Each structure stands twice: as C-alpha cells, then as structure tokens.
Simulated scan of single mutants.
Amino acid sequence: MSSENKKTPLFKLNQPDDNYKFQPLPEPFGEYPYHLKPEMSLPDPHKMVFQVAGDTGGLKSPSFQKLIAEEMGKQYYQAKNPADRPMFLYHVGDIVYHFGEADQYERQFFIPYKDYPSPVYAIAGNHDSDVNSNAKIPYSSLAPFTSVFCGKAPRPVPFGSKLNRMSGMQPHVYWTLQTPLANIIGLHSNVPKFGVITEEQKAWFIEELKQAATEHSDKAIIVCVHHAPYSADFNHSSSLPMINFMAACFETAGVTPDLVLSGHVHNYQRFNKTYANGKTVPFIVCGAGGFDELHWLAESDEVMYTDKSELFDTVTLENACTMQHGFLNLEIEKTEEGHQINGKYYAIPHEGLKPGEDAALFEEFTYFCKHGDKQAVQ
C-alpha cells in the first residue's frame, strides 16, 4: 500500500445511515436569537487571543487531556504581554465520552481543567449529545452538558465533588458568542456520524450570518460545528451533510465566514476552500484534544475512500498533524483594512512530554480578510 496521503478531502464509501440516533434538543435557556456577550476587557483593543480544542475527553488514558489542559494554561501564565494571554477556550465538542454522562464530568472535565485560568465556552459533540440507555438513572440528551455550560445566570452544577462549581451562561446548545473582535457562531450537529442539523437551527444560522455581516467591519465571522465538513482521515472523512448545509446557508445568507472550526476527527487538518467570489476560507479540524484514539490520514490507494467529487474542486489540504495530541491558538487582529487571523497549532507527542518540555509549535498560518471584500456567494 502506498505511504502517500491524499492532498484533498475524502468521502468514506458505503457508510450506513445512522440518522436514527438523532436526539431531540433541549429547550433554550435564553431568549432568541441566543446571543452571549460576556464582559471581556482586551488589554489591546485591536487584538484578541483565544484557544481551540476538541475531543478532549479521556477514558483509557486520561493523561493526554490533562497534558493538553496544562499546556494551554501554561501559555496563559507564561505570556510576557497581557495582550497575548488567551481570553477563553472555545471547545468544539466531545467533552465527555461516550454518552455525555453526568458522572463522567468530574473525571473527564472538572479535574483536568480545574486550574485552567480562562473561561471555557463549548458546543456539544456527538458523544456529549448521546444517551446511555443502560444508565442507572435515566437522563435526557444534553442534560449534563447544559447543566455545566448553559443558563440564564450562573448556578451550582448539580454533580461532581465540587458542588460550588457554577454553570456557564450559554443561552442554548446553538448560540453566538459575541466578543469584541469576532462573532463566533456555534452550531449543534447532534449524534449521527456525519451530523444532522434541524430546519429550525438552519433558519437561525442564516439569520446569524446576516447579522454578523452587518458588523463585519468590526468583527471577524467564525463558524464552529463539531462534525468536520472536510477531512481526509481514515475513520470519519468528510461529512456530506455538513458540506451541503454550509453551502446552502452561505448562499442563502449571501455571506461567507472568515473561518470554520470543527472537531470530531481526532487530529489536526487545515483546509482552504476558495469560493466563487474569490474568498478563501480556512476549514480547520482541531479534534486531538485528549481522547486516546487518534486518527491518521487515509493513504492514496485506499479503496474505501474517494476524492472524486466536484464538491472538492476548490478545497485543498494545506497541512495536517496526525497521531499527536494538540490545540490551536488563534489571534484576531483588527487593522485599518480588515481582520488578520493568525494561528499557531501546538502538538504533544503520543508518548507525552519530558519534564520541563513544552508543547511543540507544529505550524503557524495567517489569513487576511479586507473589510471591503465581497461577502456574497456567487
């Protein structure tokens, strides 16, 4: 078998339909259109740094998720310039494996992240959204997740040893985080392997894109969804439902975002997609945050996959980091002409770090979006 990997996204062939796993969504905690605008004082009003990680939960080898949390926190404390400190972590899903159980939050989230210095915001992954039918105490989909991350006001989390832990204030399981330099639109893609998004959420998303476009001269537009639209990995590969969903929404709204972030696939991949209006949008998979099973890329002659699709014609795989755990630092910088997005991906070898060793910088990248760029999808 060839050792070469594909340079484009892939579809995995002959996948069974598992949409029967779809779970109904909980009622929202806040008012439509589900915005959260936390108090956020930037040391430099033209610069904001935050971190991204996904699929952090750990069962067999919890040391990996602990390492990721420690390394992200270390970057906060070691920053020489206050403006370089990450303001928050945006989690792209799969916090608790395998069924989002309340009794697993202590081990998989509360303990590893107890010393993380910044707020944590999150969208739910497929495992967070699933339900363990054999649980001793029955629970509904996303009940533990919303107990930790959602609410009209902070309230005690009803499980875990530290009962004084307070919940977040996210208004719904799909919602927009309004920060000084970016509108971050978080979607909920449910349980099935390639994701499912309801028509109600689709209508909301289109309106959020339109609203974000009205503020685009001041704020970048970032979209987050757990199921990765594009991937070249051997396990999941690309999600046709998410590709079609994004394309339809961008066209209807007449808006293309500046960046799309995902998890689900347990590695790091950075794709560029060029739209008909000439805009290049990075689609970044950031799902190597701690779960012990990592995903490599499919090899070039693997017969279970195909890259033969016109949907991939303007999509290229720019870089990938596989079989290592890692996280992403993003810096949004506002200039007179537009927004610059600077990224740094840090990786940790599967065998861990030596005493005193830091996560290694795997790659740096920069994207620039001029304020005058056309947003309409043509």
Rank of each mutant, 00 (worst) to 15 (best):
L177N: 08
K152D: 11
P180I: 11
G168P: 11
N126P: 02
H188Y: 10
E336G: 11
N267I: 00
Q15Y: 12
Y32V: 00
E207T: 07
E302L: 01
T335I: 14
I197M: 14
D292N: 13
K152M: 10
S217E: 15
S262I: 04
V173W: 07
S2D: 11
H227T: 05
G195I: 05
V303L: 07
N190V: 03
L25R: 14
Y268L: 00
S2T: 15
K210W: 01
H371G: 12
L209I: 03
E4S: 14
Q375E: 11
Y105W: 14
G30I: 02
A228N: 13
Y105K: 08
N132D: 13
E363D: 14
P112F: 14
K334E: 15
N134P: 01
V315A: 10
L311R: 05
T306D: 05
K279Y: 00
S300G: 04
E333T: 10
E331W: 02
K193S: 09
P117E: 06
E336K: 06
P158A: 07
N183V: 00
S262R: 07
L353I: 02
D94H: 02
I197E: 12
A203K: 12
P144H: 03
V285Y: 04
T314F: 04
G352Q: 09
E351Q: 10
K60N: 12
P154W: 13
C286W: 07
P82S: 00
G263E: 02
T146L: 13
